[in-house]
Each structure stands twice: as structure tokens, then as C-alpha cells.
Design a protein around this nucleic acid. Structure first.
Length: 277
DNA sequence: CCCCAGTCCTGCGGGC
DNA sequence: TGCCCGCAGGACTGGG
């Protein structure tokens, strides 16, 4: 579930470890099948041991640790991954432990209940080319209105489906796509090439508005309770959702129409058929 | 180009 | 009450 607001909240939460030195990178004992990690953890350990954490960055839904030597450790939480400096929710689903020294925290954890997350280490050269050539669009908070339209404008896919495609714009997932389209008053069913200039402008504004608003509330912790910030604390944006998981309930804008749930590209879409056209 | 179904995986909740 | 199935969806893959 973590999308841009949750991942940005994780990033901000682990910022205090910038300047710390990496003592070791190890796999905590975990009986489950290991998560996808390249290269192997002992290789990652060999490369990063003794290095300073120079920065913690984010692109789309990934948290990236930049080492003093310019290597990039990319943590991709996917559905249930968390990046923490506090004690993780359980000891059972720990996937990576980065032991630290010379700063306020002893450990940086990657915890992932379902184990769909990934860890990847790139050297400085690979990192530079990955940041440039990765099949990953501009970050949703960086993209301009013009770029957004250039990326999506000729597509015949429904706008909701296209917004989820990370190679056009990175960071928007199923929950925020629904929230954004409601704020923009655009039907999720509308074909991208059918959006008017006015609608593109509204969409771009809604992306910024919704994502920043969600970051202010530290993201959405859904009923399964999985998502936590770096201090293992819940977000509260779930209390401000306009449409997500509100099928049958009245639209908060028009007050009358019931929110509908439909399926697009095998995913739930929530919207107000009256407000979103 | 786009779509769809299947894959990874765990925990929960609906239905019987 | 208990058990099983299906659903949740981020990213990716293979076939059409």
C-alpha cells in the first residue's frame, strides 16, 4: 500500500540517520522466504560497511540511501514494507538490518510482512544511469502540468489506470489515484486523450494538493493497520479520505450521491458518479 | 501500443 | 464456532 505520501513520511522519519556510519548490513533471522535482494546481503554489507549515510532520498514509492561513496541502496516497500528506526511491529517479518554508529540510532530496519518488497544496491555509476534511464517517470510532486499532459495525453487508457503506471508519473497508487480524481472532478473512466486543457490543469493541481495533504497527515494507515512511519506510528489520512473504501456512503462534496466502487484493470476504483464527469 | 491473467505473499473477513 | 476461500494491490511477466 505505501504510495508517495507514506514513503515520503518514512523518508522524513529516517532522516536523523544521515551522517551516521554503517557498521554492518545483515539479514535478521527470518524463517520466511527471503525477499528479492540484489546483490546478496553479504555483498551489500561488504560495499557499505564503514561508509557514512550521506543522504536519504525518495523517488516515487522508493526510499534511497545514498552512501558517502555515491552508492545507492534502494528500498522498495511495495505492499507492506516499512523503513524504521524504531522497533518494528514484529520481529517475525524483519528483512534487513543496517547497524549504525555515530548518530542517534543504532539500527535502521526494513520490515515487510508479505515480503513483496525489494532491496537493490547500485554503485555510483549504475545509480546515475538508473536515475536517468529507469523506466520510472518523474516524481508526482516534481512533474509539471505540461509534462503530465505530455506523458499521458495521447493515451487511450482510462485516466485512473494510466495514473497507476509508474513509467509516466511515479508515486501514485490505487488509493491516491481515486482521491486525486475526486478532487479534480474527473471521472476515472475518462480516456486520457479525452481530457480538456482545463481538466489537465485541475488534475495536476489535485495531484499536488492531495499528496501534500496526505503527507501532512503522515499517510494512510488502512484497517489492516500495516502502514507505520519510521517511528512505528500510524498515519491519519485515512480519516480524511473522500472516496477510497467509501462505497455506498454519501459523497462529501455533493452530499447526496453514493460513492461507487467499480473494477478497472483488476483494481478497485472508487468515485462519485455525480461530481466526477 | 494496450489489455489481461497470473505471480509473488500474508492476514483478514465473509460465507457456509 | 471454525474453517476455507477470496480479496487486498505494487510491480512484473508472458501471451494475445
Amino acid at each position: 500500500m505505501p504510495e508517495l505520501p507514506e514513503v515520503e513520511t518514512m523518508r522524513r522519519g529516517v532522516l536523523p540517520v544521515v551522517g551516521s556510519t554503517i557498521k554492518a548490513v545483515i539479514s535478521p533471522p527470518c524463517e520466511r522466504r527471503p525477499i528479492a535482494m540484489t546483490p546478496r546481503v553479504d555483498q551489500i554489507d561488504r560495499v557499505l560497511k564503514g561508509q557514512r549515510i550521506a543522504a536519504i532520498e525518495r523517488r516515487g514509492k522508493r526510499v534511497m540511501l545514498r552512501s558517502g561513496n555515491g552508492e545507492l541502496l534502494i528500498l522498495e516497500p511495495r505492499m507492506t514494507g516499512l523503513v524504521l528506526i524504531a522497533d518494528p511491529p514484529t520481529s517475525e517479518h524483519l528483512r534487513l538490518r543496517i547497524r549504525l554508529t555515530g548518530g542517534p540510532h543504532r539500527d535502521l530496519w526494513f520490515w515487510d510482512r508479505r515480503g513483496l518488497g525489494t532491496v537493490r544496491l547500485l554503485d555510483a555509476e549504475q545509480a546515475a544511469s538508473w536515475l536517468q534511464d529507469a523506466p520510472l517517470g518523474k516524481d508526482a510532486l516534481e512533474i509539471s502540468a505540461l509534462e503530465l499532459r505530455q506523458q499521458l495525453g495521447t493515451s487511450k487508457r482510462p485516466i485512473k489506470v494510466a495514473l497507476l503506471d509508474q513509467k509516466h508519473v511515479a508515486g501514485i497508487g490505487n488509493l491516491y489515484a481515486a482521491e486525486i480524481l475526486h478532487v479534480a472532478k474527473i471521472s476515472p473512466l475518462l480516456s486520457c486523450d479525452g481530457l480538456s486543457t482545463r481538466q489537465w490543469t485541475r488534475l495536476h493541481a489535485a495531484i499536488g494538493q492531495v499528496l501534500l495533504e496526505a503527507i501532512r497527515y503522515e499517510g494512510s494507515t488502512l484497517s489492516d493497520g500495516t502502514y507505520r512511519n519510521a517511528l512505528n506510528t500510524s498515519g491519519s489520512y485515512q480519516n480524511h479520505h473522500r472516496v477510497y473504501d467509501r462505497q455506498g456512503k454519501p459523497c462529501l462534496r455533493c452530499r447526496g450521491q453514493a460513492i461507487e466502487r467499480i473494477v478497472q484493470a483488476q483494481r478497485s476504483t472508487f468515485y462519485c458518479p455525480k461530481c466526477q464527469t
